[in-house]
């Protein structure tokens, strides 16, 4: 395979470090409906990147373009210098991919599934054995190695899928909604594993519909309707959020809630314990607080630090909810 020779080398200009992932203005439409529009994305080794957004935001499309499963309509992208437009063997060797849905063979055992992927990636016997036993031990799947994949619990299945994606030691690990349908204990285990591989220098890109999960990433991109609304470190994104969040304690909640929701500037309302969390546009925040205080149903109102989910909901309603870095 000579793909790496013919592909344009993104490091050629300027000589800066090669990105593990480098997407430039990538677009894809399904029969005229844009799924991903002008996506720019760079990822370095040892970085854990989360692509976050609601269902249908274009996360899976972006991931499938990145892994060479789907050709972009426009734009270009490279993974470790290999073009994603014409997926070469070298590109596939560079990527480990764990799809969202069940993608292994249910009637094959853990061992057989691992061997199968080991063969496809052309691993010599010795290497295959070593890596297999290491992955089985860190995922604690060793005792179950002859169990069929269809008899594994959701969490164990995901760990097996992860192992299959890691067997050829890719430089980039791509996971499409890895924690979907996984119990919290396995979820935590999965995250611990990911941190371990990232520490070893692997680049990890994952997608998630859960905001609390985004906060675990080094860097997140918020995707909505195919566009990247904002990108950055989760804590920095929260710092750059321009709107305000309040926690309200009210009486007769259910009639009042609609009233609150209809106030000018209110971007999102959500329950939190017995209270209500309200995200309010910055210019209307003072007015909102005054309005709430002046009504008898308000027991208490206090400003609180926004969470990542507040930021996301704010961004959905107002694309300018995040301060430009330069202006900050």
């Amino acid at each position: 395979m000579n793909a790496s020779r013919t592909d344009p080398d993104p490091t050629a200009d300027g000589g800066q470090t090669a990105h593990v992932v480098d997407l430039r203005g990538v677009c894809h439409s399904f029969s005229g409906t844009p799924a991903v529009t002008d996506l720019d994305l760079q990822l370095e080794s040892g970085e854990l990147y989360g692509l976050v957004g609601p269902d249908g935001a274009g996360k899976s499309t972006a991931i499938r373009m990145l892994t060479g499963l789907l050709a972009p309509d426009r734009g270009e992208g490279w993974v470790c210098g290999h073009s994603i437009r014409r997926p070469s063997r070298a590109l596939r060797q560079a990527i480990g991919y764990m799809p969202q849905q069940y993608s292994l063979y249910g009637d094959l055992s853990i061992d057989e599934n691992l061997d199968f992927f080991g063969h496809l990636f052309g691993l010599p016997r010795q290497q295959r054995r070593e890596r297999k036993s290491r992955l089985l031990s860190i995922t604690r799947l060793e005792p179950f190695r002859s169990r069929r994949a269809c008899d594994l619990s959701g969490g164990m299945y995901k760990k097996l899928a992860l192992s299959c994606a890691l067997l050829h030691q890719p430089r980039l690990l791509v996971l499409d909604e890895p924690t979907n349908g996984v119990d919290p204990v396995s979820r935590r285990e999965l995250w611990d594993l990911l941190y371990e591989f990232v520490d070893e220098g692997m680049a990890v890109l994952l997608s998630s519909p859960y905001m609390d999960e985004a906060a675990r990433c080094h860097r997140v991109g918020l995707l909505d309707r195919g566009r990247l609304l904002a990108e950055g470190e989760p804590t920095r994104l929260i710092e750059r959020f321009v709107h305000r969040t309040f926690l309200l304690r009210i009486t007769g909640r259910h009639q009042v809630e609609d009233l609150i929701g209809a106030q000018p500037g209110v971007l999102a309302l959500s329950p939190e314990g017995g209270d209500i969390r309200a995200v309010v546009r910055q210019p209307e925040a003072a007015g909102f607080r005054q309005w709430a205080t002046s009504h008898a149903f308000t027991v208490r109102i206090e400003p609180v630090a926004p969470t990542f989910e507040d930021v996301f909901l704010g961004l959905l309603k107002d694309p300018a909810a995040i301060e430009e870095r330069g202006g900050a």
Partner: peptide
């Protein structure tokens, strides 16, 4: 279901 639709649902 998307986060905002989920909130509406819970309300």
């Amino acid at each position: 279901v998307s986060p905002d639709a989920r909130r509406a649902f819970w309300r």
